[in-house]
């Protein structure tokens, strides 16, 4: 079992190499070079400074050599320093990562907690009022621009009713608060961003669980279970639901890139100092090393998400587990 998982991990290596290649291509084949941009932002940068930068980043070497050098630094987890403040790129990302991952994990938890019951209820009462409303609502939610939802909520709950804060993670006097007060303050600030971040997840999970549950209920093993005389409860929850939930694990793994991309929008709107806003700010100030590192780490997080989904799938589904070991 463990061996199978490591074999799966090894199969990700070519993908990882491909990712580094695409990152490199994007940043280096564009017209102009990093040195041009950095000098361009700073009017006092002289030709001499430009030459020094070129040498520092090895921009005068052939592209293939640059790529190999960059891979070498990457292998040592060295992403260089930021153009903006000279801070180590990895330190910047590391301080932003827990916030983004934390919010997205909470958003996923909300999606599961609300989406699964809604989906199951819809499947059991197919075609009834709740199911029809839910279907219409999720179809509409797929078409809603998340930044607009955020703006509407901000203006209604934040600006007009003054119920919720509209930016940041903490109040001004956060440091002086007691532990309980701190948590309450954080939750208060997170309410709006979390709602916006979890809305697509809730609708997606509920649709998915509904369709998957309807499918499971028409399977032969459900009929068998009923024929054996099991209680309806046991049939629904031990037999149908268990099977209907299996694909949700894959859905969660596949949702990682979408969540990371979405965090750019809601973190920027709500001024939350996570990876999304860091990426946005780096794009605005053309902070090359940070952009390159974020692109790479975003893809690596996606790979990790897929790998975790594979493990999760093997854990919940014995058929997959045996298949993996046999291979």
């Amino acid at each position: 079992m463990i061996k199978a998982l490591f074999r799966r991990l090894a199969s990700l290596v070519p993908l990882l190499l491909g990712i580094t290649f695409i990152c490199f291509l994007i940043v280096h084949l564009a017209p102009g070079s990093a040195a041009d941009l950095k000098a361009g932002l700073n009017p006092r940068a002289s030709l001499e400074a430009r030459a020094r930068l070129t040498q520092l980043y090895g921009l005068d070497k052939p592209l293939a050599q640059q790529y190999v050098d960059w891979l070498g630094r990457l292998a040592k987890w060295d992403f260089g320093t930021s153009f903006v403040d000279g801070q180590k790129v990895w330190d910047k990302i590391l301080s932003a990562m827990p916030i983004t991952i934390g919010i997205n994990v909470l958003a996923l938890a909300a999606a599961l907690l609300l989406g699964i019951p809604a989906g199951v209820y819809g499947a059991l009462h197919r075609g009834k009022t709740f199911d029809r409303w839910m279907t219409g609502f999720s179809f509409a939610a797929f078409s809603l621009p998340s930044f607009w939802v955020a703006l509407i909520l901000m203006s209604f709950l934040g600006v007009w009713l003054r119920l919720l804060p509209v930016s940041g993670l903490h109040s001004v006097f956060y440091e002086e608060f007691g532990a309980f007060h701190k948590i309450a303050d954080l939750a208060w600030h997170l309410a709006l961003p979390l709602f916006v971040a979890s809305l697509p997840g809730i609708t997606m999970v509920s649709r998915f669980v509904r369709d998957s549950m309807i499918d499971a209920l028409s399977q032969n093993y459900v009929r068998t279970a009923r024929a054996k005389g099991l209680t309806e409860r046991a049939v629904l929850y031990d037999h149908a639901l268990k099977n209907a939930l299996l694909p949700v694990v894959t859905l969660l793994g596949l949702s990682v890139p979408g969540l990371l991309g979405g965090s750019v929008i809601f973190e920027t709107i709500f001024s939350i100092p996570g990876m999304g806003r860091l990426f946005f700010n780096s794009v605005f100030s053309r902070d090359y090393p940070v952009i390159l590192a974020m692109l790479f780490i975003g893809a690596v997080l996606t790979l990790i998400g897929n790998w975790l989904a594979d493990i999760g799938y093997a854990v919940v589904d014995p058929r997959i587990r045996q298949g993996m070991v046999k291979r």
Binding site: G18, A30, G261, S282
Partner: peptide, 23 residues
């Protein structure tokens, strides 16, 4: 298939923003 798998690893919004930052 490999190329598609690689492209699907990137959060699309990250990829788009990175290219916009350059072009």
């Amino acid at each position: 298939s490999m190329l598609i798998d690689i492209f699907l690893c990137f959060p699309v919004f990250f990829l788009i923003l990175a290219v916009i930052a350059i072009v």
